[in-house]
Design a protein around this nucleic acid. Structure first.
Length: 428
RNA sequence: GUGGGCGUAGCUCAGUUAGGUAGAGCGCUAGAUUGUGGCUCUAGUGGCCGUGGGUUCGAUCCCCAUCGCUCACCCCA
């Protein structure tokens, strides 16, 4: 026998049982995005490698070591998207969306690809949904963005196990000032820092703040705070964001050490983490990126966005508020006697056309086996068809919950089932 | 890329104290009930014990390699 072909490392199959959870989550996402007036955008799965190099940043981990890049037949270097902000911005610029409206509120959902070592809640193909609001420089836009994700958490019933961490890196002037202040503070202790942090001292000193090396943490405790270096405009922006979050009663933790890994952030940055997860506890991350549109060749347009990992979010849901994903079927047709089997397709087709979820056995199994199958599929009704019933154009319609059974004509079956089901849902 | 743990039935796992070619529960199939599911009872199906090599009369067990899974580091969703 030939070897079984195995799936690629770090990816997974979403089987029907799990897919039902995904469908519920996706329905929640779509509903909330509609309420917040965000429109869906579906950029391609792959882009020119250059887009991510310029958009995400050459020095980031994502670009320097995690991308799935390849050459196509024409010799272009292409890359499976490792995140989608760069793709959305590219699309915004290329399609002149600014001309349609000065503010574009967009959302997306789809698979992303990063070649990292897999672990719990981190996969090489993973799904993100996210939102980007391009056009407004104002703090109310920041707050709406955060409220948007918070609303999704609320719908899922998991706000209690989630923490919002927030910080500001300010505008370019503030960040430059802070960079020097931080370097001045760290310089005398340079040799005490971890190897990676020493390497970052010149290239990206802010990242030393979120280092997990014990010696770095010790030093960083007394380092100057970004907040203290914000210029007036940046400080005002941030204060207003926090004040509006209080108005909306969205709890947050001000985190002076929060510095996100991507190069493009300015002003507000935030992260939602969950205590229901292991080491990979971030379920949503985002922030303002006022310079990215310009850097990718567009006009000088401010923007803010976030992205959330679906696999991780579902892990939290499963731990905190599991969904009921038992299968449900309106009607199962049980046929007795092989001569009648050929009548089944037309009957179930008609009932399906009339709006029932309906199934029938195609293995010519015994009645007992068909009844068991109906039970397995969560059938709420079973229609039993034998010789006598067929000659009279009727079925025995059995309510699978109560066990009650009545004789119903073929063309009345769907109506009877639908009436009964709608009565039941009104009661509950 | 670095380190730890683990690969035995579709799933969760036991087991070989010290090497003699394997078990349970769940699931699946069927019967008890020849036209009535769920509960119960009974029986059955199902495994080159991840793969390759070595030691041995003999390896699922010991040794080596390899692949895979998993957790953590780095970083991130």
């Amino acid at each position: 026998m030939p070897d079984k072909v195995q799936r690629v490392k770090g990816v997974n199959d979403i089987l029907p049982v799990e897919a039902r959870q995904w469908q519920v989550l996706e329905a929640v996402i779509q509903k909330v995005m509609n309420r917040y007036a965000y429109g869906e955008i579906r950029p391609p799965i792959f882009e020119k490698t250059e887009l991510f190099a310029r958009g995400v940043g050459e020095d980031t981990d994502i670009v320097s070591k995690e991308m799935y890049s390849f050459s196509d037949l024409g010799g272009s270097s292409l890359t499976l998207r490792p995140e989608l902000t760069a793709g959305v911005v590219r699309s915004y610029i290329q399609n002149n969306l600014q001309q349609i409206s000065p503010v574009q509120k967009l959302w997306y959902e789809g698979p992303m690809f990063r070649q990292e070592r897999p672990q719990k809640g981190r996969y090489r193909q993973f799904w993100q949904f996210g939102a980007e609001a391009i056009g407004s420089p104002n703090p109310e836009q920041d707050v709406e963005m955060i409220a948007l994700f918070y609303a999704i958490l609320k719908e899922l019933g998991i706000t209690d196990s989630v923490t919002l961490k927030i910080n500001s890196v300010g505008d370019t002037e503030s960040r430059t000032a802070y960079r020097s202040a931080l370097q001045d503070y760290l310089k005398p202790h340079l040799s005490e820092l971890s190897e990676t942090s020493q390497a970052r001292f010149e290239s990206n000193p802010l990242r030393i703040l979120d280092s997990k090396a014990p010696q770095d943490k010790e030093l960083v405790k007394d380092a100057p705070k970004i907040r203290e270096c914000l210029n007036e405009a940046s400080a005002n922006h941030y204060d207003q964001v926090l004040s509006m979050l209080k108005d909306l009663k969205i709890p947050y933790t001000q985190d002076d050490l929060l510095v996100r890994g991507l190069d493009y952030y300015t002003h507000t940055i935030f992260e939602f983490t969950s205590d229901a997860l292991g080491a990979q506890d971030a379920i949503c991350g985002g922030g303002r990126y006022n310079d990215l549109v310009k850097e990718l060749g567009g006009n000088d347009v401010p923007a803010i966005g976030w992205a959330s990992g679906i696999e991780r979010l579902l892990l939290v849901v499963e731990a905190i508020k599991p969904m009921n994903t038992d299968p449900v079927l309106d009607l199962y047709l049980v046929v007795l006697g092989d001569e009648l089997r050929i009548k089944a397709p037309q009957l179930v087709r008609d009932w399906r056309d009339q709006g029932l979820s309906c199934d029938a056995d195609a293995l010519r199994r015994s009645m007992k086996a068909q009844m068991r199958e109906a039970n397995r599929q969560g059938a709420r009704f079973v229609a039993i068809l034998g010789e006598d019933e067929f000659s009279q154009g009727v079925v025995q319609l059995k309510n699978f919950e109560s066990g009650e059974q009545e004789t119903v004509a073929f063309d009345q079956v769907a109506k009877t089932v639908l009436n009964s089901l709608s009565e039941r849902s009104e009661e509950s």
